[in-house]
Amino acid sequence: MAEIEIKGVGKTFGAFTALHSIDLTIKDQEFVVLLGASGCGKTTLLRIIAGLDSPSKGEVWIGGRRVDTLPPRERGISMVFQNYAVFPHLTVFENIAFGLRMQKLPQAEVTRRVTRTAELMHIEALLKRYSGQLSGGQRQRVAVARALAMEPDVILMDEPLSNLDALLRLEMRAELKGVLAASKTTTIYVTHDQVEAMSLADRIAVMHGGDIIQAERPVEVYRNPAARFVGSFIGNPPMNFLPATAAGEGRWQVAGLTFEGPRVAAPQIEFAIRPEDLHPADHGFEAEVRVVEPLGPHTLITASVAGVVMRAVLDSTLALATGDHITLSPVADRIRWFDLATQKAIA
């Protein structure tokens, strides 16, 4: 059982604040992805949980034990590093056995665990090799096997797939998900790749500027972004935003159309819609097509609506060309509103 509690954790490097005050509770066996652009503090947070960095303030609890003053080896964690960190002077077998030998487990148990995790990661044939004789993907497997062999309560992963080529990344992603689910560990996974985050996570914690903006199920994060940043960061292409001007009680003027919206006092807020929630219709936004990108299953168009660039994902059978005028209608229950000042979603 390893629930992780992060209470008010902050980190400053000199004058630079990497983390403001992070509060996050991760349930036992949950798979949480820390998602954000580089420099958002996600790796710093992971390293603080691992014990490789110490927080400037706040507490970290793992499995009901306060661990922020303990060294990494006493926290019941193992970690997979971005560059794999496979020891070059040891064979694959000894790499996987490294932590077990530190625990002084009997040889039979070491062999049993190494063999089992090697089978799990499909590297049984490589046990006698050195890291220099392995491909990137194989090193990645060794790194994961080494972490799993420890049978830790918590596995921490720092962008483990970012150095693999696209095809291998896809394959490893699916495999990791299966292996980690079976291992019943709590997992914290850092990535800047939103597709990776969506596909792996039980819960995504979106980070930006040293804060967690939103921590919810992937679909929830996608459908109901808590802040403008989340909508613009997650989704490819990202959410479309249009300015909305107050037009009476709960009514908003958006690019010449009037919508039912939130009842707030602000003179201006923001209207947001995902590209796939725009459909050609008789009544809607007047759009002038700028770019047409056929992608196979659908066609991505970039269009200008009232001087603002918008993207729409349309059916690929539609015959469209640059300069065409179309009318795009937003799906009513998919419209989201954001406050201009706070950048937060308005319910």
Binding site: G51, L52, P71, R73, N83, F87
Partner: peptide
């Protein structure tokens, strides 16, 4: 990173 990996694997 190699040293850090060793730290997470039980080394001081």
């Amino acid at each position: 990173e190699l040293e850090e990996a060793a730290l997470t694997l039980g080394c001081n």
